[in-house]
Design a protein around this nucleic acid. Structure first.
Length: 453
RNA sequence: GUGAUUGUAGCUCAGCUGGUUAGAGCGCUGGUUUGUGGCACCAGAGGUCGCCGGUUCGAAUCCGGUCUUUCACCCCA
């Protein structure tokens, strides 16, 4: 006999967890649909050629590769083995598990370009796999909920992303959070303005850590990466900038006056806020953060990140605009903007804040119980009447003591029990007991069904 | 990938520097109560001490390896 176990970084979801996860998932799905996104799904596995080279060297290493079926060693020579893993890999594996939902989506768009109507708004909720080292809030299998629009440059999309995030959070009962927003062009502009043109990539990587390690360490890192001390000094007033939205915009227009790209970024941001205002919306929860960088290198316009305040979990949602998502698959000129919710992290946040509603875990509404064969027959007929009325009902399947039946109900969180004994059969009634209050009353079947439906 | 850390009953954890039969609380099963759960009392079942190897007369305890957990870095959701 072997002890059962789970692969590293994976987990089961029991009934309670599933009910809670569905509460989150349903809220997100409902919101995406409300804003006109349609759902798609793609296979768990993709060809390795589709996946490799899209996430950088680190990402390639984190891909789960699938061993070819059959005699997977038949193409491998002794020479290959000597050369090592990288030379052998392509001969033993041609498929891998998806690493995110964005690349499979890009593949989907290219393959279906003639059938799709652009702008194409899609959402996708599926698990992805990474051979990462698990940590709190980091798993090897986890769900992503992506929504993207491709084939339009309109900044309405950006504004709608803000609205969708706010709707989801409000429906989940989350109040204290901020949607950080910035524009990649502003970061490019900053690099230009401080005299380090073209170096926004290392600049972003370093700046991204500002919250975590502080300005001093960031400036050290920049200096290590070859930034001039004078450039770093120029950056300082920006880092220390404490101002409201209008103040920041004003400051940046001046700071970036030498950079056309930078000014364009500010303009785009203003436009997004302008659109929100035209929709009659305010800027609640929206936080223009000049230092928000996000690691991903493919963003070219707006970037978002959502952080719930006063919890121990990192960002729960993020995204941005990218040009040329599908370029690597041979379809250029398709720009898009998208974002994603981290369900697993949202789960942890809601748990930490105790925000899961009680009803979300309730399944069965009434359990029918009985004492003997005669009661069992009677209960079966009653059961059907509850179900016909759409009431979630079940019958205790085995003949057992009342104690055991009631125990089952209260442990499963079933709020009502319908007792079917000789008295009830005689009167064509049901003893309906509320397990929470302990109150029991004798009702006709019709009354009982009415009460619970 | 680097550096730490964890593993004893279903769960949370005791078990001192190696020494007879490895414990507790909760949970579980049965009973007190053959038409009524939560409370109380009584009884009972459950453990190759993560796995493999080594040291030793003797290992849950020491050593090595491996897997797992958690954490920091890297990166990221």
């Amino acid at each position: 006999m072997q002890k059962p176990s789970l692969p590293k970084g994976t987990r089961d979801f029991g009934p309670v967890q599933m009910a809670r996860r569905n509460f989150i998932l349903d809220t997100i799905k409902d919101t995406f649909q409300l804003f006109g996104y349609s759902q798609i799904e793609t296979p768990a596995m993709e060809n390795l050629s589709t996946l490799t080279g899209k996430y950088g060297d680190e990402g390639d290493q984190l891909l789960f590769k699938i061993l070819n079926s059959g005699d997977y060693l038949k193409n491998v020579s002794a020479e290959d083995l000597e050369k090592g893993a990288s030379a052998t890999l392509s001969k033993v594996s041609e498929k891998g598990l998806r690493y995110d939902l964005t690349v499979p989506f890009a593949r989907f768009v290219v393959m279906n370009r003639n059938e799709l109507t652009f702008p194409f708004k899609r959402f996708q909720i599926q698990p992805v796999w990474r051979a990462d080292r698990p940590q709190k809030g980091r798993y090897r299998e986890f769900y992503q909920c992506d929504a993207d629009v491709v084939g339009t440059d309109s900044l309405v999309c950006e504004a709608e992303i803000v609205l969708m995030i706010r709707r989801v959070f409000s429906n989940l009962g989350l109040q204290d959070y901020s949607i950080k927003i910035n524009n990649r062009k502003i970061l490019t502009g900053i690099a230009e303005a401080i005299g380090e043109e073209g170096k926004e990539a290392p600049l972003c990587v370093a700046i991204d850590k500002l919250d975590k390690i502080g300005w001093e360490k960031v400036s050290e890192e920049l200096s290590q990466k070859g930034f001039d001390n004078s450039s770093i000094e120029k950056l300082a007033p920006l880092v220390e900038l404490q101002s409201d939205y209008a103040g920041k915009v004003g400051f940046l227009k001046d700071f970036l006056s030498s950079s056309e790209t930078g000014l364009q970024g500010v303009k785009e941001l203003e436009e997004v806020f302008g659109i929100l205002q035209s929709m009659g919306e305010n800027l609640d929860h929206v936080d223009f953060d000049v230092m928000l960088a996000r690691g991903l290198s493919y963003y070219t316009g707006a970037i978002f990140e959502v952080k719930v305040n006063n919890v121990s979990i990192g960002s729960v949602s993020g995204g941005g605009r990218y040009d040329n998502l599908t370029g690597v698959f041979g379809l250029s000129g398709v720009s898009g903007v998208g974002f994603s919710f981290g369900v697993d992290r949202l789960y942890d946040v809601l748990e930490e804040l105790g925000l899961f509603p009680e009803e979300s875990i309730q399944s069965t509404k009434i359990l029918l119980t009985y004492f003997d064969e005669k009661g069992f027959r009677y209960a079966l007929s009653v059961l059907q009447q509850f179900r016909k009325a759409g009431v979630r009902a079940e019958i205790y399947p085995d003949q057992a003591k009342m104690k055991k039946q009631l125990d089952y109900a209260s442990k499963k969180g079933v709020p009502y029990v319908g007792i079917c004994g000789d008295q009830e059969i005689e009167r064509h009634s049901l003893a309906l007991k509320n397990l929470e209050t302990g109150v029991q009353e004798d009702l006709t079947i019709f009354q009982a069904v009415e009460l619970l439906s």
